[in-house]
Amino acid sequence: MSAEEVHNRISMLRAERGVSRKDLAAALGVHYQTIGYLERGEYSPSLFLALRIAEYFGVPVEVVFSLRPFPRLGSEVVK
C-alpha cells in the first residue's frame, strides 16, 4: 500500500444517488474534473473537502474514505 493512498467510494455513492460528476462538483464548489481525479485515486482530498463530500452524501467520512481498499460488493455474501 502506498504511504499516501486513500481509497474512496465516491463513484459508487454517486451512481447510487444518480448524481453526475458535474452536479457533485457544483455542490462542492470544485472543478468537475477534480471529482474524476478523486474517483481515480489520482488526488487525495484535504480533510475539509473529504468532510464536505461525506456531508453531501449524508454519511460518516469513513464510509467514503479509507486507508485500506474497500471490500468488493457481495464479497461478504460469497464468504
Binding site: V30, Q33, P45, S46
Partner: peptide, 16 residues
C-alpha cells in the same frame, strides 16, 4: 489545463 496555470488562485479549487 482548465486555466489552472493562468487563472487567479481564488478561481481554482484545492486540486488545481
Amino acid at each position: 489545463s482548465g486555466g489552472a496555470v493562468a487563472m487567479g488562485e481564488n478561481r481554482l479549487d484545492e486540486r488545481q
